[in-house]
Write a protein that binds this DNA or RNA. Sequence first.
DNA 1: ACCATTGTGCCATCTGATGGACCGTTTGTC
DNA 2: GACAAACGGTCCATCAGATGGCACAATGGT
Lengths: 248, 248
Amino acid sequence: MATTSVVSAFRVLEGVARLQPVGLSELAREVELPKSTVQRCLLTLQEVGWAESSSSAPTRWSMTLRALSVTGGMGARESLRDVAVPVMHELQLSTTETIHLVAPDGDELVLLERLDTAHSLRAFLPLGERIPLHASATGLAFLSACDAGRIDRYLDGPLVPRTPDSLTDPDRIRDELAHIRERGWSVNVGGLSSGISSLGAPVLDHTGSPVAAVSISGPSSRIEPSRFDDLGAQVAQAAARITQRLRA
Amino acid sequence: MATTSVVSAFRVLEGVARLQPVGLSELAREVELPKSTVQRCLLTLQEVGWAESSSSAPTRWSMTLRALSVTGGMGARESLRDVAVPVMHELQLSTTETIHLVAPDGDELVLLERLDTAHSLRAFLPLGERIPLHASATGLAFLSACDAGRIDRYLDGPLVPRTPDSLTDPDRIRDELAHIRERGWSVNVGGLSSGISSLGAPVLDHTGSPVAAVSISGPSSRIEPSRFDDLGAQVAQAAARITQRLRA
DNA sequence: ACCATTGTGCCATCTGATGGACCGTTTGTC
DNA sequence: GACAAACGGTCCATCAGATGGCACAATGGT
């Protein structure tokens, strides 16, 4: 856990990403590094084209769009998206709700792709949003397809609630996972964002371990319990089709 | 242009992004750095959570999804997207074609948001794709709203064609830009991808300089010249509405 | 079994990162 | 208008850590 210059650089970069547009002092405070270090870091980041100070406000720093470009070239994940998007689109048309595609990164899920609904009342998450495994439909769906070891390890860690309705009791979650495995889809009512309900299902690779998850999300007023069976069956089917096409 | 460790780190990172999943030697050759340097770099990148070697193939390196997360928090650009998406959605519904939102990064445009069409025949670009200013409808639209100095500087540089139909002659481009300024929208037939036609219009900030561009894209067989006036007027109007809401 | 290519570890050398001190400027408070 | 507080930016002596050549190990193709 050495504190090399590269480590500092990424600390600074992630600080900028979080706080942009941000000034030197505030940033230095946030990432807990001396101002002079942060300053040199910013110049270096500018040199490599990852950060910039807008010409109108030369002391406020932002990220460039280069980060977006490197995510664009993600080989394996690209193919996942290419396969998933058409299926997601059909799901979007038949449900008219927001469809999400997420993939794991560490012990969280990251929002890879989102197809919005035409409704003005929307469940809106930015691409790249990080989503906990225990407080989302996609997370529970994903977790339900993991092997017991990984589940145990995850449920051993601290499970911070995102809303008052988030599941945080390991035993409750295990019960829920069993249900999900039986019927093939998960449901989460207001556990990630209050007032938003989602239904999810896992996408598997050729070995059977989960590589992604899909979900349908919308305001709880529209996504009523009476529609769960129908919508759940639809996500499960969509996820299964993505799984199937992934093997080709 | 010093060659600090941070510069190497980003060289390596971008190399990984481009070639992933990639081995050490190939990567070292690509980024033109000694193998030992590249390896230490990879370990550091792993430490900060930006690169990883898959457990199944521990010698092949890929990027994590962290890059996606930092793009998610893009403050100013987020608000641009928030404003643009609803307008884009209406445009999508009324044209049933693919809608793109791009923003400048350096001398290129980057695809920020995409709303797909229901058509199976689609113009598909991944988010984060880099688009040259002279060979796209969005690029020409953007360029048409730049000040003369910037246009001159850009047209002085090398204009590499993307397809045989790309515009590369500075004088032809200047003529085109004049047309675009008159009627308010640009058109590009097969200049970015063969068989794909697009119409674009610029989004301006409060000072009148361009900050983004919107476009309608689809197969040239559907986006026929006879529809240009209608579709062009629609993008222009959409861009104008985004411009307007951006001032609020 | 052989060779080509790849991944990994080591270490003497010296580059370049560090961070405290300092200065000029801006912001906002009385 | 004057003062204080916070800001962005620069400098430089010190030393941590980056460098890259080399040698060894592991892989896989023929």
